[in-house]
Design a protein around this nucleic acid. Structure first.
Lengths: 329, 329
DNA sequence: CTGAAAGCGCTAACAT
DNA sequence: ATGTTAGCGCTTTCAG
C-alpha cells in the first residue's frame, strides 16, 4: 500500500505538498498539483485514515448503539442515521446493545477508544448510565427516541405525551370508551409519557382507563401476540386498544385475526411509529407516526455541528396516520 | 484524555512496559504490573485504537455493505454479522449501498482507507465490480447471499438452486400445476439460480412453467403488492405462487387478502428466507428457510481467520418451513 | 524482566 | 508556493 511518502517521492515534492493538494488546505501551484495527482493515480494511493485520525484526533466515525438491529423501528432509524452521517462524511460504527447496560458500557468505552466524533443512542433503559458516562468523556452524544426525564442530556425525540393525546383523542372521536393500552417496557420514559398523555386525555373526556386495562409489553411482535391472547381470555369487553408501537399492534392483530376476531369489526387496534409494515398489513394499521427521518437528520446534524450551534433537547411532533384498523363504536 | 505516556510516568515505568501489561505480550513482574494497572485506573486510561491500528495496520474493523438496512432480510443479516464480529473483537462499519455500484465503489475505497480487516458484501448486483476491486486490494472479503457465477471469489450463501427445487417439490406435492414464480432482480444470480431449480423440477414432473408466469420482482414488499394485482387482473387461473423472498410473498398476500382472495383457499403462496414476519403474518407463510445465522457466523469466521484455513466458497442447504399459506389443489 | 529508540502515515506549525 | 520538522499514541525490535 502506497503511502504519502511514495507519492511525494514520485512527484518530486514534499509530503506536505501532497497533503495540501489532498485536502485543499493551502494553495498549490497548478503544475505541481498536476504532478502530484498523477503520482496519486499511478500509485493508486489511498490516504490512511488511521494516521489522519490519529493526528487530527477524530476518526470521522459516529457510533450508533441500538437495542436490536433487526427490530423494524430501529432498523429504520439506523438507515436514516447512516444516510445523514455519510452525507456529512462520517462512517457509522453500529453495535447492538441487546438492552444490556453492561454491554452498552463496554461498547461506549470501545467507541471512545476509536476517537469517534460522537455517539447516538437508542432507547437505553432508564437504568443505563450511558449518558452520564458520555457526559464525563466530553464526547458529543445524542439520545434518539428516548430521554432521561428532567435530564440535562441532549436528545431528539417525538413528543411522547402528545402521541398519547393524539391516540386517545382519535379513539374517543370514534366513540370508544372500553379502551386498553399496551405499553412498552416500564423503565423507558417513552412508555411512561405515552401512557400519561393517553390516560390524561381519556380522563378529561370522562373515560376511565381501568388499571387492569394497562398491559405491560416490551415493544416486540411477540409480546403483542401474547397480550392479545390474554385480552381474549380475560378482557372480552374491550372495544379498542392502543399499542404503544406498531410491532406490538401488528402482533396483536395477528392473534386476533387467527382467532377469527375481525378488525376493526370486533375490536379496533391502533399503533405508534408508522413502520413500513403498518401500511402493508391487512387491515392497514392506524397509527401515530414518529418523524424518524427528521429525528435522525437532526441528531446527526447536532452531533457534528460545532459546539456553538448545538441544540440540546428537541421534541418533534408526532402525527396521526389513519388507516383501517380502527372502527366506530 | 490520558495517553500511554501519562500512565508510564505515573507508574514510573517505560511505555513499553505499559504496552506489555496491556496486551500481555511479554511477561511483566507482578509488582510492576500492579503499579501499572493502578495508574491505568487512576487516569481512566483508554488505549487509542487509531494509534494502535496505525502501528499494527489493522483497524479491528469489519465493513458491511448492504443494499438496504431497513429490509427485513438484510437487517437480520446485519444483526448476526455484528454479533459474530463483535464476539471476535471487531466493530462493524455499516453502510448502505442502495444497490448503487458507484456508491459501492466509493464505500469500498473509504473502508480500505480505514484499514478494515475485511469487508462483507450483501447482494451486490452482477454489474458490480466490487469483488474485482477488493481482490485487487488484497483485503479479505466475503460475499453473503450472493455470488458471481463461476467466479473465483469467496462467498457463503444458500444453495439457491436447491431452494427452487424444494419450493417446486412442495407445491407439486400439494397437487398444484398452474404455478407462477416471482423472481428477484434479473441481474442477481440468486434470482437466476432459484428460478432454474424451480423450473427444472417442475419440468421433471411434466409441469410447464409458462414464461408468462415468471414475473420479475425486486425483492421488496411493494413489488409483491403490485405483482399480485397484475396476477389478479391477467392470470386468474394460477393456483400457487412461489415468491423468491418473503417480503414479496407477504406483499402479495396483502393485496390478495385485501381483495377478498382467500389464502390458501383461493390461491397458495410460498416465500423464501423465513424472516421473523413469515411466522407472524396471517396466514403463516410457508417458506424456504435460509440459514442466515450460520451464514453470518461462517462469513465472519472466514474473514478474520488466517489465510491458511480460509475457505473460499461455501454453499449451505436451505430448508422447507411449512406453515399455512399453501393448500392442496 | 525492563527501557530506549525507531517508526507506522499523516498534518500543522514554522521556515523559506 | 513549497520544504522541514515535530509529533499524534502506540508497538516492537534491540539492548541490557
Amino acid at each position: 500500500m502506497a503511502s504519502i511518502n511514495d507519492v511525494a517521492r514520485l512527484a518530486g515534492v514534499s509530503k506536505a505538498t501532497v497533503s495540501r493538494v489532498l485536502n485543499r488546505t493551502a494553495p498549490v501551484h497548478k503544475q505541481t498539483e498536476k504532478r502530484v495527482n498523477k503520482a496519486i493515480r499511478l500509485l493508486q494511493y489511498k490516504p490512511n485514515l488511521l494516521a489522519k485520525g490519529l493526528k487530527q484526533k477524530s476518526g470521522r466515525l459516529i457510533g450508533l448503539l441500538v437495542p436490536d438491529i433487526n427490530h423494524p423501528t430501529y432498523s429504520l432509524i439506523v438507515k436514516h442515521v447512516e444516510s445523514y452521517a455519510r452525507a456529512a462524511g462520517f462512517h457509522l460504527v453500529l453495535a447492538n446493545t441487546g438492552n444490556n447496560p453492561d454491554e452498552e458500557a463496554r461498547l461506549i468505552d470501545n467507541l471512545l477508544c476509536r476517537n469517534v466524533d460522537g455517539i447516538i443512542f437508542l432507547r437505553v433503559s432508564n437504568k443505563s448510565l450511558a449518558a452520564e458516562r458520555m457526559a464525563q468523556s466530553g464526547v458529543p452524544f445524542v439520545l434518539i427516541d428516548r430521554a432521561y426525564e428532567h435530564s440535562p442530556f441532549p436528545f431528539v425525540m417525538s413528543d411522547n405525551y402528545m402521541a398519547g393525546v393524539l391516540a386517545a383523542r382519535y379513539l374517543i372521536s370514534k366513540g370508544h370508551h372500553k379502551i386498553a393500552c399496551v405499553t412498552g417496557p416500564p423503565d423507558i420514559s417513552a412508555s411512561i409519557q405515552r401512557l400519561a398523555g393517553f390516560q390524561d386525555t381519556l380522563k378529561q373526556n370522562d373515560i376511565a382507563l381501568d388499571p387492569d386495562h394497562v398491559l405491560e409489553g416490551d415493544f416486540s411482535f411477540e409480546c403483542g401476540r401474547r397480550i392479545a391472547r390474554d385480552i381474549l381470555d380475560t378482557l372480552p369487553e374491550i372495544s379498542a386498544i392502543w399499542a404503544q408501537n406498531d410491532p406490538m399492534a401488528i402482533g396483536m392483530m395477528h392473534t386476533f385475526l387467527k382467532n377469527r376476531i375481525r378488525i376493526p369489526g370486533d375490536i379496533s387496534i391502533m399503533g405508534m411509529d408508522d413502520i413500513e409494515l403498518a401500511a402493508l398489513f391487512v387491515p392497514g394499521l392506524t397509527t401515530v407516526r414518529q418523524p424518524f427521518e427528521k429525528m435522525c437528520e437532526l441528531a446527526v446534524q447536532n452531533l457534528i455541528s460545532s459546539d456553538s450551534d448545538r441544540f440540546s433537547q428537541l421534541l418533534l411532533m408526532p402525527e396521526l396516520v389513519e388507516r383501517d384498523s380502527v372502527g366506530t363504536c
